[in-house]
């Protein structure tokens, strides 16, 4: 029979259009952007506090990650040749426009910092660039939270108060993890602490987000998103604790913990991305919260 639509949907068709973004490109972009931003901060600290290897690891990682993320972004464009149009305008209402300008500022700084670190040329300039990257890096890591939250995708928008925190947490964990993985144990203390800090922030904020979003929280717990996010949590917690407890003693433990953290961050980003897709595809996640909101409004006068 021609299905009789239920109260809440038109033949179960989504109300909103799910993003057409390739998960690999965009979740990858989120991850790499976060990794870059937080790595620059670590690199800056390391530079200041005389941890040359950690600094160099951070700078190179930042450049590689930001390069990768930019590549992913361009690749995802429907018209890659027109990527320069991103700088056609400055739009504070567009997180992607703001992000583009942030990237346009941060990218060259991260590049200069890394280049100087690798070649040893223009050390003074390199230091200035390192500082600049360290100061702009957090913006790179944080704005992506707004990028996702400023959409009609229920799982993202409903988390708009937490998503930037979740993302910087995940970024710190990843960057810390990478530091643990690549820098000598002796220099990696701040990386371990950054990872621990990141893991705590991420866990707390994502928990808060899920509690605040009613039925939509299902999308974080079910399906592919659920699997990814459970893995993310396990990896991140294990990596952070492992790093904190054993990372200072064992290179292997540090490396393993670091890798787990990086992987955890990857899973977080892909998990959140998938939760968003799932919430967009099922009209219930759009309609039910809106209905509840309407009911509250009329109930509350």
């Amino acid at each position: 029979m021609v299905p009789r639509p239920t109260f809440r949907s038109y033949y179960g068709e989504p109300v909103i259009n799910p993003p057409r973004w390739e998960p690999l490109n965009i979740a990858g972009y989120l991850f790499l952007g976060g990794l870059a931003g937080a790595s620059s901060v670590i690199a800056g600290g390391a530079e200041l506090t005389g941890r040359p290897v950690l600094a160099k690891v951070g700078k190179v990682a930042a450049l590689a990650a930001i390069g990768g993320s930019a590549a992913a972004l361009v690749k995802d464009l429907g018209r890659p040749a027109r990527f320069a149009n991103m700088l056609r305008t400055v739009k504070p209402t567009s997180p992607m426009s703001v992000g583009s300008w942030i990237l346009a500022t941060y990218g060259p700084l991260a590049g200069a910092a890394a280049a100087s670190a690798v070649t040893g040329w223009f050390p003074r300039l390199g230091r200035a660039a390192t500082a600049g990257a360290a100061l702009t890096g957090p913006a790179v890591a944080a704005y992506t939270g707004v990028l996702l939250a400023d959409t009609a995708v229920p799982a993202w928008h409903e988390a708009h108060r937490q998503l930037p925190f979740t993302f910087i947490g995940s970024a710190a964990a990843a960057a810390g993890g990478l530091g643990m993985l690549l820098a000598p144990v002796a220099e990696a203390g701040p990386a371990r602490r950054a990872a621990l800090f990141g893991a705590v922030v991420e866990t707390v904020s994502s928990g808060a987000a899920e509690r605040g979003m009613g039925i939509v929280a299902e999308t974080y717990r079910q399906g592919r998103a659920g699997t990814l996010l459970r893995a993310a949590k396990a990896l991140t917690v294990a990596g952070a604790l492992g790093g904190a407890l054993f990372g200072g003693r064992s290179r292997t433990a540090a490396a393993l913990s670091g890798a787990a953290l990086v992987a955890g961050s990857v899973c977080t980003r892909f998990g959140i991305f998938e939760a968003g897709l799932a919430s967009a595809r099922d009209p219930k996640y759009t309609v039910v919260p809106q209905r509840e909101r309407l009911a509250r409004r009329s109930g509350g006068g």
Partner: peptide, 8 residues
């Protein structure tokens, strides 16, 4: 100013 109309 916000680049949502005439300017773009």
């Amino acid at each position: 100013r916000l680049g949502r109309g005439a300017a773009v």
